[in-house]
Amino acid sequence: MTNRILFIIMLVAGLTAPLYAYPVFVMDLLCFALFACAFNLLLGYAGLLSFGHAAFFGGAAYITGYVTKEWGFTPLLGVLAGAGFALVIGTVFGFLAIRRQGIYFAMVTLALAQIIYFLALQMPFTGGENGLQGIPRGHLFGLIDLNNSLAMYYFVFAIFLIGFGIIYRTINSPFGEVLQAIRENESRALSLGYDVDHFKLLAFVISATLAGLAGATKAIIFQFAALTNAHWQTSGEVILMTLVGGLGTVFGPVLGAITVGALSHELSAFGSWVQVILGTIFVVCVMVFRRGIIGEIQRLASRKQG
């Protein structure tokens, strides 16, 4: 019930956002919101902490940029190509990472993501530290000019809704139930006859692909694939967004992405102090605010009822 209300709020806010906010800024937030939702599927529901999601987010952006710029792919195909790339490396990384558990899983994903980062820095087509620039926005279905910022906005919002829908469906399916069972007690799920590794890998691949979808979309919006998107700090940022909004809640990551994104934007004049502030929020969240915003609201609501 609450989910339905929250979804309607999100839908209305999303549809009307260009009326009162700068579209490019909101599009950026939507990309990060989708990225955080994808990340949350893995940590919040399967209990796997990936410290390398920037590889999918940033890596997909480069692929999308390359195929639209050099091969003349349409924006939609370009975005799909980026997400497809994330799917492929997600499968490889997932296969390797699930061989270790807990804290090792985090370290393995971080180290693997670093390979993508160095490739993005060194490959001939990526533009090194400058990133891949001059990506065309192109025409959607050959008809709608995405250089129009409103058209672009609703294209991005549609992608966000599709990604969000896939995640929502995944969580509320038998598959999602099994994931949560694995999170709660892996040995028990195993003894019930579930092929735990299979479930973990599939969750990892879905999460990676949607993170890639978010990064690919971002490349089209800004016409630019940035090296920072593949940096480990981006992996940290998405963790922070999910944590602030509420780990393992449906709408938490969206709210977290908006909060952290707006905060970074407001504080951007302070230079490196932003990092200090984000770090402090991280510490505060871990110490006293582990449920996140949505999680705390849910707890208060259930206490009132009970």
């Binding site: 700090q233 940290g236 963790i239 944590l243 102090w273 990092q275 510490v283 871990v286």
Partner: peptide
Amino acid sequence: LLRRLYDLDHIYGLLLTFGITLILQGLFSN
């Protein structure tokens, strides 16, 4: 800080120290 997290999942220790990393790194970058 860390002492209060021992009863929780070990990933919280990692996340806490990640936050501390950002703080230290940001401070010196200034």
